[in-house]
Design a protein around this nucleic acid. Structure first.
Length: 1051
RNA sequence: GGGCGGGUAGCUUAGGUUGGUUGGAGCACCCGGCUGAUAACCGGGAGGUCGCAGGUUCAAAUCCUGCCUCGCCCA
């Protein structure tokens, strides 16, 4: 058996899987079985795959593999997300196209071609990563969001929403750059914050039926012509002041006459008003509501049918942290403003065009000018009209265009919405049906989001995406939403052509005949939010409803999705949004939400920080098995994971190497003995075998239960501990001698069968998480791939070996006693190789069957059960704090101290039993104390408490530390054996080859008796052996024990 | 500002719902031991204000309140 090269083994298996098409087989062999539907959240292949993608794909894969082994039909269709802003930005950067007009000039067709190509930049890298990490998914027949079929399904879904009256056109206030003609996502906005100093103004709004003015503050004077309302907090306190004297130090324009009256928030008045004045009355904000004021720029905005325009209105978000407690409201230039305006019916009219300059008719001095150049003009206008109280320079962070550096304007853009607020109750109800892991993401984070659901703005003023299939009549404004290619064909005008594909600019050229008036209809020039695309994945992947009706019927709602927690408001939401509005159903039954991946310092991984981990570093070093196992066992799936590269190394060394060596131990001897599990059978298993088989049963059940409850990390840890601690460090360690036996023995066969069985079960349990090494092991043991095998729990564990809990408990005790024995030896400075003559177990259950195990482990000649408890043990009384605390409460410290000061525990126990014991006025009963039997001083011994709950027993182990010649001889033999064995290993001898041995014992050596010498010869496979007295020649190996020199030579 | 989650040894973490003996592991470090499956393993040592401050209690890592801090999402 060659040394382990995990990477080579994994690469070899990938090839094997490719050749025998194991993935396809694993599906085909379960054809006809109940399906388990996994939906792949489509990645975008225009970014390089990173370690976080490996994490997500591991969780996706392991659940699918597990379910497949459970007997489900688990088809796994791949998918690619190919639309969206990041794609366009990438291309824009490369081609230096700064703005939408630039793109149009460059040519939309060419631009979209570039986008289409750019989408596949890293497809190969994704494929390689996917294959190398063994994520089994069908990448040869994936769904792709840019394909016409996919788009047609999305159109159909939008058509359904339109027909249900859920689609409407409104405005959305977005950060907008007039220079590039582009609105920005929050991500892009974050790129361009700059600290700037700008004029802010306190403006007097003269009331209609009152002498006073209301004072409002704004940092964007250019929005003042658009003012149509003043917002106050209903519970905020406001005051009316009257100027009674001039200000002593005035800076800049503006001012106030003596006798002038102004209204503002009480809390802010001191910081705002520079004049001497009297407070003449106080109001709650709610009392001001409804008061009318004079428009600042008459005629800039048409009143229309609004009854609330230029009045005071209430808004609960108004605070007194800055300004005047009165918020100037220009409906089209702020999100709060817009929402408030819609709620109370303010006119929604622009005063600024999309080029960033004032519209004609705003004001003669402003019309046609770029708004940011008008601050000064506006301030002057206000000042000369007596409408300015103060100006003040203001420093703040303001978002700027990350390309041009110009300030962004918050601007109400035309936008199409899905009326999610209309289906809020449904969303909540459907969400309740989803099994979330962890549950708090569903109830908390996601539930919170749904309870505050907003209408979904689904249109984007972009080029590369699913075109919005809404056409509007140029004449009668009738709207129509196209639901299919056929419908498009039927409705388009005779001079339109069917688009060559369902993208811009081709669809833009199609005109429809208006069913209302017969005029032409033109498409609304938007593309859809790419989240809409992916939200349609569960049916669009089958081209529903045009094809694959059956595929959908069998696969909806899907059983399982799994993505990062950042998808809560992304994909998790859009799937539910689409399924609720279109299908009146949840989209998925189970959702595993994964934590973010951080570097080992807990920082987010990002290219700029340079702390991104390349998965290939680990694939090529420890392999994909260790990488996957590490990621899964490092913490709960939903916890943020600090990725420590060293952890992968540890996982490899501790778990995989150990597992491989267990396998190799079995395989080496199986090969020597021509072991065949089919041919031979075994009547009776030894105690050790029955124990590890019982543990295997227990661990398989536990592992399964933990997977079911999504505690995947705990499952992995439990299994790892079993393999390392139970299987390797106890079962195999204590079984080595059994397989060394060269004769056929039933005990050896029992051991081989046991290892074969246990390794088979372990392989199957590990397979979903780390699919490589265990497949190799399973193939070698059973001749078939583990991925085609049955899950060990499929028959509720009936095929697993028998459980024997009594045996498990006893073995657990023996192992604890072994540990104690080793500790005793260290304390007594007794070398492990020097045997002890005798050992005693005091108390506890009958472990006589296991005495041999223990004596071998502890190198004790003989272990026996000591019946006379008092020989090595004494009674000790300890407080039962729980019982005593309830009884004596605050007297507990005294009682504890009194108990601690007892010296004759034996007598005290008698008193307690007789009811004669009392402390601080409390009678101490047997329930108040724990009676323990612990080792007596002066013995090399240790005691442990074993049992459960009520029945606790003390068990001690005692070792005899005396030395005699027989022991010394045995110890010497063992020293010699160990040196020669390591020499054999050093010489790289075959296990079965024999040697010629010479030993020289110096005078100081204890006598090596004949029996032990024979033992040396047998153990070291010495063909000839000679024992010399005195110092050995200088050219041979030599070592020292207890001051005596021993030399030896191996040929 | 709001919601959710975290903060335990140098590092990674268990425990926390049910308050009760000395807060468990692994890695790394030191000492010792063992070894013909093992790159391992076993025993010991050192390393902890269980984020901080209050509170409840005879008793708090655990329950309560406030704060600090990190992460994500939202505003």
């Amino acid at each position: 058996m060659p040394e382990l090269d995990a990477v080579a083994m994994e690469e070899g298996l990938i090839q094997t899987w490719g050749e025998e098409d194991t993935f396809q087989q694993s599906i085909e062999q379960r054809r006809g079985k109940k399906p388990f539907i996994f939906l792949e959240g489509p990645p975008t292949a225009n970014g390089k795959p990173g370690i976080h993608h490996v994490v997500a794909r591991t969780y996706k894969d392991l659940v699918c593999r597990w379910k497949a082994m459970e007997g489900f039909l688990v088809e796994r269709k791949g998918g690619w997300d190919t639309h969206g802003l990041p794609v366009e930005i990438e291309v824009q950067k490369r081609l230096d196209l700064m703005s939408n007009p630039d793109i149009i000039e460059f040519g939309m067709e060419k631009f979209n071609d570039e986008c289409r190509n750019s989408v596949w930049t890293y497809e190969d890298a994704w494929r390689k990563m996917t294959e190398r990490m063994a994520f089994w998914v069908d990448l040869d027949n994936p769904y792709i969001t840019l394909q016409d079929n996919y788009i047609e399904s999305c159109w159909w879904a939008l058509g359904e929403m339109f027909n249900k009256g859920l689609l409407f056109k409104g405005h959305k206030v977005l950060p907008f750059c007039p220079q590039t003609g582009t609105s920005y996502s929050s991500h892009e906005v974050a790129l361009g914050y700059k600290e700037v100093e700008e004029p802010s103004v306190y403006v007097k709004f003269k009331l209609q039926n009152d002498d006073a003015s209301v004072l409002a503050w704004t940092t964007t004077p250019w929005t003042l012509p658009g003012n149509v309302g003043l917002a106050v907090g209903p519970d905020v306190d406001y005051i009316k002041i009257k100027v009674n004297a001039d200000s002593e130090n005035w800076d800049g324009r503006g001012g106030a006459e003596i006798g002038e009256e102004m209204i503002l928030a009480k809390d802010l008045f001191k910081g705002v008003i520079r004049h001497h004045c009297d407070i003449i009355s106080e109001y709650k904000g709610s009392e001001l509501v409804g008061m009318e004021y004079e428009p600042l720029f008459p005629g800039a905005v048409e009143r229309g049918d609004s009854t609330t325009a230029w009045t005071i209105i209430e808004a609960d978000w108004v605070t007194t942290t800055d300004g005047t407690g009165v918020v100037h409201t220009a409906v089209m230039y702020g999100e709060d403003d817009y929402n408030l305006g819609m709620a109370v019916g303010l006119p929604a009219q622009h005063t600024v065009g999309m080029d960033g300059s004032f519209l004609t008719g705003t004001h003669s001095e402003l019309d046609g000018k770029y708004v940011k150049d008008c601050d000064d003009i506006i301030i002057n206008l206000l000042s000369t009209e007596g409408k300015l109280y103060r100006e003040k320079m203001y420093v703040h962070d303001y978002p700027h265009c990350w390309r041009t550096g110009h300030p962004l304007l918050y601007y109400a853009m035309d936008s199409w919405f899905v009326k999610m607020t209309a289906v809020k109750e449904k969303l909540l109800e459907f969400n309740d049906r989803v099994e979330w892991a962890p549950d708090w993401v569903g109830e908390g984070r996601f539930g919170e989001w749904l309870r505050n659901v907003k209408d979904w703005a689904i249109s984007r003023e972009r080029f590369w995406g699913t075109p919005l299939p809404v056409w509007v009549c140029v004449d009668c404004k009738h709207q129509h939403c196209i639901s299919s290619k056929d419908e498009l064909q039927t409705m388009m005008t005779s001079d339109s052509e069917m688009p060559k594909e369902l993208h811009r600019p081709y669809v833009d050229n199609v005109k429809l005949n208006c069913p209302q008036c017969g005029e032409n209809m033109e498409r609304e020039a938007f593309v859809m939010d790419c989240w809409f695309d992916s939200g349609c994945a569960f049916f669009a992947q089958w081209h529903h409803p045009f094809d694959g009706g059956e595929a959908l019927a069998n696969s909806f709602p899907v059983d399982y999705i799994c993505e990062g927690v950042d998808q809560t408001r992304g994909w998790f939401y859009t799937l539910l949004a689409v399924s609720t509005t279109v299908f009146d159903s949840p989209a998925y039954k189970r959702c595993l939400s994964l934590g973010l991946i951080l570097d080992k310092e807990g920082k987010k991984m990002s290219k700029s920080k340079g702390n991104v981990i390349d998965p290939w570093d680990h694939f090529n070093r420890e392999g994909a098995d260790a990488s996957r196992w590490y990621m899964v066992s490092a913490g709960a799936p939903w916890s943020p994971m600090k990725f420590d590269p060293n952890g992968v190394r540890e996982t490899y060394a501790r778990f995989f190497l150990t597992m491989w060596n267990i396998y190799r131990f079995h395989a080496d001897y199986a090969a020597l003995d021509n072991f065949d599990p089919e041919q031979s059978s075994v009547e009776e298993r030894s105690l050790l075998d029955r124990w590890i088989l019982s543990k295997t049963n227990a661990i398989a059940h536990e592992f399964h239960e933990l997977l079911v409850s999504w505690d995947i990390h705990k499952a992995a840890r439990v299994l790892e501990d079993f393999v390392v601690d139970d299987l390797s460090n106890w079962y195999v360690r204590r079984s080595r001698r059994r397989l060394w036996d060269e004769n056929e023995s039933s005990d050896k066969a029992s051991c081989q069968h046991t290892l074969h069985e246990v390794l088979t079960v372990v392989s199957r349990l590990v397979a979903p998480i780390s699919p490589f090494m265990v497949d190799q092991i399973h193939r070698n043991l059973n001749g078939t791939s583990v991925h085609l095998a049955e899950w060990p729990l499929n028959d509720d564990g009936a095929s697993l070996p028998k459980r024997d809990e009594v045996l498990e408990a006893r073995m657990s005790l023996v192992r604890q006693l072994a540990e104690m024995g080793r500790k005793i030896r260290v304390d007594a400075k007794r070398r492990q190789r020097l045997p002890c003559a005798e050992g005693w177990i005091v108390g506890g259950p009958d472990l006589s069957e296991m005495h041999t195990l223990l004596s071998e482990e502890l190198n004790v000649e003989k272990i026996s059960l000591e019946e006379d408890l008092d020989r090595f043990q004494k009674v000790e009384i300890q407080p039962n704090r729980k019982a005593l605390g309830k009884k004596v409460r605050q007297e507990l410290p005294q009682v504890l101290q009194a108990l601690d000061e007892l010296d004759d525990h034996e007598a005290t126990l008698a008193d307690i039993q007789a009811g004669r014991m009392s402390i601080a006025g409390f009678t101490i009963t047997e329930d108040d104390v724990v009676v323990r039997r612990v080792e007596r001083m002066g013995y090399s011994a240790m005691t442990i408490e074993v049992g459960e709950n009520e029945v606790m027993i003390d068990v001690s182990i005692v070792l005899d530390m005396s030395i005699d010649d027989a022991l010394l001889s045995k110890g010497l033999a063992r020293e010699i054996i160990r040196r020669i064995q390591s020499k054999r290993k050093e010489l790289d001898l075959e296990m079965e080859s024999t040697i010629e041995l010479d030993i020289w014992l110096s005078e100081e050596c204890p006598e090596l008796v004949e029996y032990d010498w024979e033992h040396v010869k047998a153990e070291t496979r010495a063909r000839t052996a000679t024992l010399h007295e005195g110092e050995g020649p200088s050219n041979v190996d030599f070592f020292e024990v207890d001051g005596a020199n021993i030399s030896f030579k191996v040929n």
